[in-house]
Design a protein around this nucleic acid. Structure first.
Lengths: 156, 156
DNA sequence: AGCAATCTTGACTTTTTTGTACAGATTAAT
DNA sequence: ATTAATCTGTACAAAAAAGTCAAGATTGCT
């Protein structure tokens, strides 16, 4: 239940591209985010094939957003970079050596994970890249406005 | 951002032990959860060293809860099995080749993760093993009673 | 004491994830 | 056409996680 490197760096690269009106090259992104050019290229390829950014080849080439930032949902980005917390086929994959999930009838564990997944989706599906392009202070007030977070004193 | 195998199987083994009043052996847990005895032993060791279960050696030995189920917080169990989603030192670990996080001043990404982390903690810190020992239907109504989830139609 | 059932530990293998290397393809400018 | 800057793709290497194995230690029973 940790953030993967792909998720962290992928999202940062996307934010970096979004912050720049014009296009950014791999060396530029690599330097800005502190990752190797080769690794930046790998991550950018994932983002490109998932349709969030588009590339221009050749000299004067680079990457830019494939569509406006307010139409890029962060939940979709995270899915592309690292998959969901609780996959729909999780139980069937984790039934061990038995053919059916040993908890299929009375699976309180599954119910708990589903709850956590819903809460995470609640935030990530309502957050767009546009929201992340604001600065941190504005971001804090944005997340406070999300449903389900009103009673929390979340950001110290 | 996926559940790890340790988290899934570890929690299941703990639930299985909690469901059984008396003690359970490694072969019994292994068979009940569909994992190899060796892997069950490895997971049970983590749970034991974290203080959630205690072991009796020798013949007639086995595992049982180290304290009542309502005093075992699931958030603590998950931490022991797989760590937190967003570690407090995450930024310093993921600053790449640069000495400081390149987003330290304007880190909307960090703010987003912190929000997700708080929501997850909100559920996991309020859920005890006792809650998971109910059956699935009761579990569903339990999670609905948690703060922050009231507006969601979460369990289909 | 001897035996069988049981947990304990560390090393090992396999699989997955992370990260790197390099040759190839594309483009703009000259 | 040539060159230099750029993205693209595949293969490879390193690190982490998942899972296995075998030898050892403990305990209850006879």
């Amino acid at each position: 239940m940790k953030l993967t490197s792909n998720e962290e760096y992928g999202l940062r690269c996307l934010v970096r591209i979004g912050l720049t009106g014009s296009s950014l090259t791999i060396p530029e992104i690599s330097k800005a985010e502190g990752v190797s050019p080769a690794y930046a290229a790998k991550i950018l390829r994932i983002l490109r094939r998932a349709g969030f950014i588009k590339a221009a080849r050749g000299k004067e080439g680079g990457y830019m957003l494939a569509r406006p930032a307010d139409r890029i949902v962060i939940g979709d980005v995270i899915d592309a970079l690292g998959g969901r917390l609780f996959e729909t086929d999780f139980c069937s994959q984790h039934s061990g050596q038995q053919s059916v999930c040993t908890h299929s009838v009375d699976c309180s564990v599954r119910s708990l994970w589903r709850t956590v997944q819903v809460l995470v989706d609640q935030v990530l599906s309502k957050t767009t890249l546009q929201d992340l392009l604001r600065n941190e202070q504005e971001m804090n007030s944005w997340v406070r406005s999300l449903p389900g977070t009103s009673r929390l004193s979340m950001i110290q």
